[in-house]
Amino acid sequence: MNPKAFFGELKRRNVYKVAVAYAVAGWALSQGIAQVFPVFDVPNWAIRSIVVLIIIGLPIALVLAWMFELTPQGIKRAETADAMAATSRRNKRAWIYVVVIGGLVSIGLFFLGRYTAPTLTPLPAKSIAVLPFENLSEDKANAYFADGIQAEILTRLAKIADLKVISRTSTQQYQSKPANLDEIAKQLGVANVVEGSVQKAADQVRVNVQLVNVQTGSQLWAETYDRKLTDIFSVESEIAIRIATSLQAKLTGREEQALAAKPTNNPEAYDAYLRGLAFESRSNYSSDALFKAIDFYALAVRLDPNFALAWARLSGAHALLYFNRGDTTAARRDAAKEALENAQKLQPN
């Protein structure tokens, strides 16, 4: 076939027009999909699949344009349409309107996406949330111990200035080992999440911990610790240090000392402290729970009068009870003040 005649036939059968109209309409459709679908949390693979289908559809549209033509009487074979009177043929300028409208829609969607799309702020690489630890002990009453280990690890990490650590108040609403870890991390605004479990039996403790980078889905670090109850402080310190190291956090000399500090040498005092911590964290400012927390903190400082952290928690619980009008007596206020003074004497910093 003569190339000139072939290209002339393409033009006569409106193949060029269909190609231009399809390209413009396809581009407009892909722009609309890219802007609208993410709003409804449509996965990226679905968006990509539709774009691929649009691309695949182009040669199909060109073949159909060669073989058929749209007339007022409907779709006809090109040969049949050629034999029809010129007045009965469809308006040959209709394709121009398709191109113009499609082009305007495409340009509008482009600028809409460019200037109205939310700016995504990258999550800090050294941001972290410590989720509640799972209690794997046969005695479910040991849940307080799992809560306490999580709280103490979080407290130690919060002492590192180079880390952004989400407060326990924000993380406590989530379950241990959640399925939607990436969604939780997005809500908390962190790039990394710590999960763990605790199993306590008599004087033996097993702690499983893992650090996950939610953005990449990779496990940065994981470890299992089997220790005696009296060695739980070193476990908490080691976990905090390993997490900080995995996130390449810079530690000052004072921070290293704070991470390695042992709050008490009395296991019974520490157990009472953890029980008080569990009641306080779950109190939601309930007076009954705060009274129980105060009882356990008071027991902890009786067992170890040099337990500065327990004195500080005792002061805080008294203050919460006072300011939340659970007990507004002068005795409650003085108790909070006295406990705070004891904590400051033992640990001025």
Rank of each mutant, 00 (worst) to 15 (best):
F7K: 13
G8V: 04
G8T: 14
E9A: 14
A19S: 15
A23R: 10
I33H: 07
P38G: 09
V39R: 15
D41M: 11
P43K: 12
N44M: 06
R48I: 01
S49C: 07
V51R: 10
V52Q: 04
G57H: 05
G57P: 05
L58H: 09
P59V: 02
A61N: 11
A61T: 05
L62V: 03
L64N: 03
A65F: 01
F68D: 03
L70N: 05
T71C: 07
T71K: 01
A78M: 11
T80Y: 05
A81T: 10
A81P: 14
D82W: 09
A83Q: 12
A86S: 11
N91Q: 03
N91D: 14
I96V: 15
G102L: 02
G102P: 06
G102H: 03
L109E: 08
L112M: 10
G113E: 03
T116G: 00
T116V: 02
L120T: 13
L123F: 06
L123D: 06
K126S: 12
S127D: 02
I128Y: 04
A129H: 10
N135T: 01
N135D: 09
S137N: 03
D139L: 00
D139M: 01
A141L: 00
D147T: 08
G148M: 07
R156G: 06
A158R: 11
I160F: 03
A161I: 04
T171Y: 01
Q173L: 07
Y174L: 02
S176P: 12
K177E: 09
A179K: 15
I184A: 07
G189T: 13
K200H: 07
A201P: 03
V205A: 01
V205N: 09
R206F: 03
V207I: 13
Q210F: 03
G217Y: 01
S218L: 13
L220R: 13
T230K: 13
F233T: 01
V235N: 11
E238L: 09
A249G: 10
A249H: 08
L251C: 09
G253K: 11
Q257G: 06
L259W: 01
K262D: 02
P263L: 02
N266I: 01
G276W: 04
G276T: 02
L277H: 01
E280Q: 13
S281W: 01
S281H: 05
R282W: 06
R282L: 06
R282A: 07
S283M: 04
S283I: 00
L290G: 09
I294W: 02
D295K: 14
D295R: 13
Y297N: 06
A300K: 04
V301E: 07
A308C: 08
A312M: 08
L314S: 05
G316I: 03
G316L: 08
A319L: 15
F323W: 13
F323Y: 15
F323I: 10
R325I: 02
R325P: 02
G326S: 06
T328N: 08
R332D: 04
A335L: 03
A336I: 11
Q344R: 15
Q347R: 15
P348N: 13
N349P: 02
